[in-house]
């Protein structure tokens, strides 16, 4: 293939877009509409998922230890743990896969937090000694809320552990919500993509069918398959490219506007709901949209042109 032929074929691809401007416009509109819907839905779902994940990150398990000050529960000599001995367990806990962060809270820190919360600034006035002596603990944050019960079981298997505080309900609810969002979004995205593929392919196929005479002529005049197909491929890819850029620009502006609107007007909401930035959303959306838009443009042209090349 000579360079001048390749350049001619590329020019023909672009010229075809203008010659068949109505089909080109219909194809671009179809791709844009499908990818806009897909992008919008993805942005909403990604934010939901991010909010749930943030909530999961806040789920923690608190571990208390047997100590000599605890008179309520029975314990053996072996189970008794000092604050320093308890601290030594940290590396074992951190080594667990489901654990994202471990904070050791000394008995003094525990009293400081508790007293401030319940008695106010001058809490120390009525207490000469720390009433929470021996209540040193671990606050463990999870990377995977599903693994909470496994972690709790493991913690209880440590002889020095007296009590583990955790909320089964929170973990189950969050885990269920996450799973539900994942399944529903996967289903809807799959349907949206399938509809997009079908619509885009049909529109491109229609445009190419309208030029079956041209393709047939090329074959009668001795064009190679590559020569006959290439302008249509260029056309399909360019239409796919334009059809992808338009909704991405639209979603970018819309998302930025919606985000700043929510942050400004609903400050309370944005304090505890962490919305994804437009960059975070586009990190996934851009490659997938280009892959779908240009990919379908490319494959749609090739398969549609092939039908008419059989002469």
């Amino acid at each position: 293939m000579k360079i001048r032929t390749l350049s001619y074929l590329i020019k023909q691809g672009f010229a075809n877009i203008f010659r068949n401007r109505w089909y080109s416009l219909a194809s671009v509109a179809t791709i844009s509409a499908c990818l806009f819907l897909f992008g919008l839905f993805y942005a909403v779902v990604a934010n939901f998922q991010s909010i749930v994940m943030k909530a999961e990150e806040g789920v923690s398990v608190t571990v208390f230890f047997h100590n000599e000050y605890d008179k309520c529960e029975e314990h053996t000599e072996e189970q008794l743990t000092t604050q320093d001995q308890a601290k030594e367990l940290q590396s074992r806990i951190e080594a667990r896969n489901e654990v994202s962060e471990v904070n050791f809270i000394t008995e003094d820190e525990a009293w400081e937090v508790f007293a401030k919360e319940y008695y106010g600034e001058n809490y120390a006035d009525g207490f000469l000694d720390n009433p929470l002596v021996g209540e040193y603990s671990y606050e463990i944050f999870l990377s995977d809320v599903d693994a909470q019960s496994a972690l709790v079981d493991w913690l209880y298997s440590i002889p020095q552990v007296r009590k583990v505080n955790y909320s089964e309900l929170t973990a189950t609810t969050l885990s269920g919500a996450n799973l539900l969002i994942a399944y529903v979004s996967m289903g809807i995205i799959a349907v949206l993509l399938a509809v997009s593929v079908f619509l885009i392919h049909s529109t491109i196929a229609m445009g190419i069918s309208a030029r079956s005479v041209e393709i047939m002529l090329m074959k009668y005049l001795g064009a190679t398959d590559f020569f006959a197909r290439f302008p249509f491929v260029v056309e399909g890819v360019v239409i796919g490219l334009i059809g992808t850029i338009i909704p991405l620009v639209g979603i970018y502006s819309l998302y930025n506007y919606a985000l700043s609107y929510v942050v400004e007007r609903f400050t309370m909401l944005s304090n505890f709901l962490n919305f994804l930035t437009v960059e975070e959303v586009f990190h996934f959306l851009v490659p997938v949209s280009f892959l779908v838009g240009m990919g379908i443009g490319f494959l749609g042209s090739i398969s549609s042109a092939r039908k008419h090349l059989r002469v």
Binding site: V213, E214, L217, K219, L221, G222, D225, F227
Partner: peptide, 28 residues
């Protein structure tokens, strides 16, 4: 495709590229 270059074909319904000029049709 190379074989077909040895045959010129003329059809009843002309099969020209209607939107293009006479020159473009032949140059095609």
């Amino acid at each position: 495709s190379f074989f077909r270059r040895t045959i010129g074909v003329v059809f009843q319904e002309f099969r020209l590229l209607k939107e293009r000029t006479v020159y473009d049709n032949v140059a095609f």
